[in-house]
Write a protein that binds this DNA or RNA. Sequence first.
RNA 1: GCGCCCUUAGCUCAGCUGGAUAGAGCGUCUGACUUCGGAUCAGAAGGUCGGGGGUUCGAAUCCCUCAGGGCGUACCA
Length: 544
Amino acid sequence: MRQQLRQNIIGVCQRLFNQEVDVVLTRPDSQFGDFACNVALQLAKPLGKNPREVAQMIADELAQDELLQSVSVAGPGFINMFLTDEALLKLAGSHYEGGAGQTVVIETNNPNPFKAMHIGHAYNAITADTMANLLQYEGNDVHRVSYHGDVGAHVGKSMYSILEWLDGDTSKLETIAIDERNSFMSEHYARGAAAYDKDETTKQKINELAKQSFKLDDQTYKTVYEICIAWSFEEIDRIIDRLGNNRVEKRYLESQANALGVATVQDHVGTVFRESDGAVVFDGEQYGSFTNVFVASNGEGLYAARDLGLMQLKHQDFQADKSYIVTGGEQRDYFKGVIAAAEQCLPDLKGVTVNVSTGLVKLSTGKMSSRTGDVLDIHWLFEQMEEAVEARGSAADHILLGAIRYEFLKVKIGSDVVFDVGEAVSIKGNTGPYLQYAHARARSILRKSEIQSENIMNLEEDERSLVRKLGEYEQTVELAVSELLPHYVCTYLYELAQVFNRFYESNTVIGHEREAQRLQLVDMYSQTLRNGLDILNITAPEQM
RNA sequence: GCGCCCUUAGCUCAGCUGGAUAGAGCGUCUGACUUCGGAUCAGAAGGUCGGGGGUUCGAAUCCCUCAGGGCGUACCA
């Protein structure tokens, strides 16, 4: 429908001026029209004509178009178009059709075991999972995976503290209740991290324990390590579920990726990599990165080498056309280097891996997630949200979820998120619960009416503005999908709900002479709302 | 030092590949309720789009420069 109009305009320009133009239909202020385009401004220069004159010529031709009710020229040479009611209704009823049909892998969460999940992890997981939804909407075969650091320095730190606490008696672990495990782990990590900086002997000891995470050749170590890993993954699954995310179909571990990554690096020393002070490094400067160590001078693989291994594991499993890795912005330059190195070692993977970087999560109270403070523990967030939701008289889990998810998703990926608990659950303004309430309200009207809806044909003024907004949905989803940015959907849904609430404020549905027709509008509206919320994995409730 | 990112209303953010009077929410002030669910709606105040140049018919958007902030810069992940 939109494409048809676009083609018609291209056709007109072709006929009139014999010019190939790229027509972009924009949505102007509603006073101007349903669509606008600026082709006349583009054409004026090559044609050597006055833009308004060109616009008028095009407009005169377009006036014949059966999709259009009226066409006018305004400003410097904009062509403004109003659709016929029929065309507008058709547009409102159309759905975004994808069609990419590629195979895609995306990491939708990657918290490390032995550490507590914090708000940053939640943000990352929600963002990535919603991106995965968008990729599915596009028609791709999407595989959600995760990747976790089960080896290395942080494991050494945790193990140091835990082993010291156990003092040889591994059965002490059984005394830790399920809901205490998360804080148990984070406390020991914090203690180990503190000990690491204390003195040289402890540091050596922890480094040794970190090494053991690769080998697991000590029986006590192995037993404790495996229990803690299991706890961590149970906890991660619980939190992922609670956040409303989809589970992953495959979980990758750094320990699995390590050997393959190191071998790949060793195979390319002298060509892609070079040796320096006994370590193997990649010079990433020309790729916007920096010189980065892939294999340490002691021969052990580092994070970068493991990423190289991981890319190959994913490729073996899925042969994906695209592979998305969603991380914090601080890893942006790092990934430029790793991806450049990977493409040189593994030509099959050229153009496959994409790193999407998110911003930091800050709290409105001013504390930042990079701090080690436990106030940013994910459970703390849940508690805060629960309290706030209950204080407003609604304790439903899906409202809490809608509030959290929407608060994260409404900001553009890449900019920092300032998370304000009070605002997120306020149920007023641009929030998840506002949209959920809007949906419940619309459904309530549909339940309450006792007559059948009828096809609406011509539109009254207020009805028209609602239908116009509904007609923007398909374009919005297309934009969100093509740029992989969920916030477009959020912004649109909020505006849609506002438009409806305005309509509803001054137009009755039930009992009105146009009740049957308006019921159809309410139905279209509630479905659009639900479809949009589905993309965000936010429940559209029947009532609240 | 070098590199990347950011700077829009008091606060938190949008602003669609440069386009028409720069838009929302929160907060503040003023209104609308025997409510088809007021968890709503209407209105007001509030902006030299960090500063300065440039390109263009036209710049919050592109280029240069300066200031301020964040992140990254070799064996952490």
